[in-house]
């Protein structure tokens, strides 16, 4: 039993933006795996829900001729895991998606809901941060595109203005082509658990053993997912070695704002960041075509 006052079902994006413009109290519901839990816990009361689930234009994943990949926000985690475009082009995102929830949750939960919910632990977010994903937001008044890094404002807070719907998650060809990536979800239980730390690393290699680019996205290392800019800047142009990788791990900690919670202490989280960034980077190097570093 949920405290649902109204349940609207929009068939098209136009209908959804019209309804949102007319009724600012509406809460968008996609898979509902966050919204319904919040209602269960009484964080949302007497909800007026607007289901966008049936809007065709927000579903599915496609690759444009120029290589740009457009992920519809209603794509479920199961679909991300199995999608040929993702598997062939951004397998690290499929890895991250598979680490999320259990099968029943993945069958229902959407990637758009994962982002819009604003949790620092969102399993798709750290990878999308590393990929410099951009988000298209549409309202009755028009549309805008924002980098995902700017979309996250604080814990559970995203830059979604009244009446706006996330309509596209966009990954540019320059942000995935030639990169290898790896995602590590560290949690207390192997499955069905929220991450204690999520680490997404993608990297590109030139001249066999030089970092052309390294990008590190972390979840649960601060109030929002974040990038480790200092470590990334250091890595660029460096020869790949155990020492370089160790230094990247150390520098990654500098970008974090870890805190103590019941899941883990600040010190433990920082230790995890240093260690898991190195492990994820080592795996990413191999996937980018580099040699294995023990």
């Amino acid at each position: 039993m949920y405290n649902i006052k109204e349940y609207y079902e929009a068939a098209t994006l136009e209908e959804a933006t019209e309804l949102l413009a007319a009724n600012p109290n509406l809460t968008i519901i996609a898979g509902g795996t966050d919204v319904l839990i919040k209602m269960h816990h009484g964080q949302i009361e007497k909800a007026e829900l607007l289901s966008i689930r049936k809007i065709k234009s927000l579903q599915g994943i496609r690759k444009l001729e120029d290589g740009t990949i457009i992920i519809g926000p209603l794509t479920t985690f199961t679909q991300v895991v199995n999608d040929p475009v993702i598997k062939d082009n951004i397998p690290v995102l499929a890895e991250a998606a598979l680490s999320m929830g259990g099968p029943q949750i993945r069958n229902v939960a959407t990637i758009g809901g994962n982002i819009c919910n604003g949790a620092t632990s969102a399993d798709s977010a750290s990878t999308l941060f590393a990929l410099n994903a951009r988000l298209k937001l549409q309202s009755k008044l028009g549309e805008r595109v924002v980098p995902i890094q700017e979309f996250y404002l604080g814990p559970g807070k995203v830059d979604l203005k009244a009446g706006e719907i996330l309509t596209e998650i966009i990954v540019a060809p320059g942000d995935y082509q030639g990169y290898g990536g790896h995602y590590i979800k560290f949690s207390m239980r192997k499955v069905m658990d929220i991450a204690t730390l999520g680490v997404a690393v993608i990297c590109k290699i030139k001249e066999r053993n030089i970092f052309a680019d390294v990008r590190i996205g972390l979840g649960v290392a601060g109030p929002t997912p974040l990038r480790c800019r200092e470590a990334e800047a250091f890595a660029k142009g460096k020869t790949i070695s155990r020492e370089t990788i160790a230094e990247i791990g150390k520098l990654a900690v500098k970008s974090t704002k870890a805190r103590t919670s019941w899941r883990a202490s600040k010190e433990y989280r920082e230790h995890l960041v240093e260690e898991l960034t190195q492990r994820a980077l080592k795996a990413a190097i191999v996937k980018a075509g580099g040699e294995e570093i023990a």
Binding site: L49, Q104, N107
Partner: peptide, 18 residues
């Protein structure tokens, strides 16, 4: 857990209207 259109889902997280 039930199957909805062939997929396993948690029926406690499916509003009846859906």
């Amino acid at each position: 857990t039930v199957l909805m259109d062939g997929q396993a889902v948690n029926s406690c997280l499916v509003p009846a209207a859906k």
